[in-house]
C-alpha cells in the first residue's frame, strides 16, 4: 500500500496532466498532449517566422513531434504545415496570448515544463539532430 502511495505521488509529480501551468490548460483546450515535444508558432505575430521557420517546422512535424499553429488565417497556417496531419493542431483563438504561452517568437514546450525560445530555425534543426 505504501509503495502504491509513493508511486501515485511520483506519478502526480511527473504527470503531464498537471493543471497548475498555463501550458497544461492550453494543451487541454487545443487538444494536444505534452507527452511529445511541442512546437508552438504564431506566424501572425512574427512576419519573419513565416518565411524563416516554415521548412524547419515541417521537419519537426515529420519527426513525429507536435506542432501547434496559431493564426487567424487558416490557409496561411496550412501552408506552413499540413493541418490534416495527426500531430498538427490549429488554433485561431487568443488563448495562447491570454495564457502567455508565446510572445512573438516560436517556442518548444516539453512535458516537464522547460521551454526553448526559438530565436532561429537552427534551434529547431539542432533539437531534431540531437534527438536522433
Amino acid at each position: 500500500m505504501r509503495v502504491l502511495g509513493v508511486f501515485l505521488l511520483i506519478n502526480l509529480f511527473f504527470s503531464c496532466e498537471n493543471t497548475s501551468f498555463p501550458i497544461d490548460i492550453y494543451s487541454r483546450t487545443v487538444g494536444f498532449s505534452l507527452d511529445k515535444p511541442t512546437l508552438i508558432i504564431n506566424p501572425d505575430n512574427c512576419s519573419a517566422c513565416f518565411n524563416e521557420f516554415a521548412s524547419s517546422v515541417r521537419k519537426f512535424q515529420d519527426k513525429g513531434f507536435n506542432v501547434v499553429i496559431i493564426s487567424k488565417e487558416r490557409k496561411k497556417a496550412n501552408l506552413m504545415v499540413n493541418l490534416d496531419s495527426s500531430n498538427v493542431y490549429y488554433d485561431s483563438g487568443d488563448l495562447s496570448f491570454e495564457l502567455k504561452i508565446l510572445h512573438s517568437l516560436p517556442r518548444i514546450y516539453f512535458c516537464d515544463h522547460p521551454v526553448i525560445e526559438v530565436v532561429s530555425p537552427f534551434i529547431i534543426e539542432g533539437y531534431i539532430n540531437e534527438s536522433n
Binding site: P43, S47, F50, N51, E73, K75, K76, L79
Partner: peptide, 9 residues
C-alpha cells in the same frame, strides 16, 4: 493553393 496572402517579399 500554394500562395499565402502575406506577400512580404
Amino acid at each position: 493553393d500554394s500562395t499565402s496572402n502575406e506577400f512580404r517579399l
